[in-house]
Design a protein around this nucleic acid. Structure first.
Length: 293
DNA sequence: GAGGCGTGGGA
DNA sequence: TTCCCAAGCCT
């Protein structure tokens, strides 16, 4: 496990030389608002940045401020979200926009604890906004950082998320200055994404391999986590229904929904859930559509 | 605290 | 083709 000084010394130069140097993503451009950063982080929850970037650019052009998004029809919001997945995030993001616009007078809070109270904003996203936009000195721990820090300490992989311990372990690796600490956080994320990957870490090209407790060791074969199949699941059904409604011009009768899934029991269940989630609405004639408000 | 929640890119 | 899993969050 390197000291914070040594880590910065090795990691930051590597990060600068990394073709991307961290500033190729559109939301890393100077002048991006706090709201823009928040939107980018929410979109990036479980969706690859390469798929997020084009959506983010259209989105911010269309709704630059929280007030703009707050005032938008939810159906438009869901269509602009397109196929990034987990569309409930779009709903929560609009709810976020309404809260920021009304309760915070349009200014995104800078305090992580305050940010965490917003819908869809958890420990990671709150820290990311506080650090990457506001420049706070605070650990930013995503799945990549957890894995990298665990391996520096000699573990093959991070165990179950234990927020407190992860934050403390990461905090101990940050340099004193807030600005440098923020760079280290991005660099750790990037290292985990590009070099210290879950499946096959490339210790040969890792800038901190010499200080790493795990470097060069084999990943123990482990049924790390049982992963749910997607095909045929409830999620799959929900996805098909949402796709149909996104692509539809107006309200859709049940018969057209029946066409996207053979099992009507599953369809019933999925539709009820979607309505209850606020992702689907019905018009006066009982046809289905994206929420009008 | 384990499981649910979309979608698609890459090996 | 099939399988993994990606800048998590919520219940």
């Amino acid at each position: 496990m390197p000291t914070s000084e040594v880590l910065s010394e090795r990691l930051l130069p590597w990060f600068e030389d990394q073709g991307r140097g961290g500033d190729d993503l559109p939301w890393r451009q100077e002048g991006t608002t706090a709201w823009g950063v928040l939107v980018s982080e929410v979109m990036s929850q479980q969706t690859q940045v390469a798929r997020v970037a084009p959506v983010w650019e259209r989105w911010m052009r269309r709704w630059p401020t929280p007030a703009d998004l707050a005032a938008a029809p939810t159906a438009d919001v869901l269509r602009e979200w397109d196929r990034m997945g987990y569309p409930r995030r779009a709903l929560r993001l609009q709810e976020c926009a309404r809260i920021v616009a009304e309760k915070y007078d349009g200014s995104v809070p800078s305090d992580p604890a305050e940010l965490e109270r917003l819908p869809g904003i958890g420990v990671y996203t709150a820290a990311a906004v506080a650090v990457f936009h506001y420049g706070a000195r605070h650990p930013v721990v995503d799945t990549n950082v957890r894995r990298v820090v665990a391996r520096l300490g000699g573990a093959a992989d991070a165990g179950t998320a234990t927020t407190k311990a992860d934050l403390a372990a990461t905090e101990a690796l940050l340099p004193d200055g807030a600005e440098a600490a923020a760079r280290v956080s991005v660099a750790l994320m990037e290292l985990g994404a590009l070099v210290c990957t879950a499946r096959k870490p490339e210790c040969g090209v890792c800038p901190v391999a010499a200080e790493c407790g795990f470097a060069g060791q084999e990943i123990p074969p482990g049924p790390s986590r049982k992963r749910q199949r997607y095909t045929g699941t409830n999620r799959h059904v929900r996805g098909e229904v949402m796709k149909l409604l996104r692509d539809a011009d107006g309200p859709v009768p049940r018969e057209r929904i029946d066409a996207v899934w053979p099992d009507s029991r599953m369809l019933d269940e999925a539709i009820s859930q979607l309505i209850s989630d606020g992702l689907v609405g019905t018009d006066e004639s009982g046809q289905f559509e994206l929420p009008s408000a």
